[in-house]
């Protein structure tokens, strides 16, 4: 299953809400303001590193680039473009947007 998160973890709790519910083997995609979580040095970096064995974590690169964080992608996180976003939706049985 694909979980889509679009909020900064420093502003809202959706990343943590998702991490608490998502099942092992799920894929997480960070888009919009949530991409900040995938940048080196962000307070959420350690939290995402911890779960990398359980989940595949992806980030929407154009959103990262837009926020000036294109060269700060944390290790272990997969960068995708909009085409990659489409593939993630197509290749997972269902998806939940953590609004």
């Amino acid at each position: 299953m694909l979980h889509i998160i679009n909020k900064s973890p420093l502003e809202r709790n959706t990343l943590d809400a998702c991490l608490a519910v998502a099942q092992e083997g799920a894929t997480l995609l960070l888009i919009e303001d949530a991409v900040t979580a995938a940048s080196r040095g962000n307070a959420a970096e350690a939290r995402l590193r911890q779960v990398q064995g359980r989940f595949k974590v992806c980030v929407l690169q154009p959103d990262l680039d837009a926020r000036g964080l294109g060269d700060r992608l944390s290790e272990g996180i997969t960068s995708v473009d909009y085409g990659g976003f489409v593939d993630l939706v197509a290749n997972n049985k269902n998806c939940q947007s953590w609004l």
Binding site: V21, Q23, K93, Q96
Partner: peptide
């Protein structure tokens, strides 16, 4: 529990959130 909720979510065909 959260884990049970996550498992139930996995079973769905369509998840709509608002």
């Amino acid at each position: 529990s959260r884990a049970e909720m996550g498992a139930l979510m996995e079973e769905q065909d369509v998840v709509l959130s608002f």
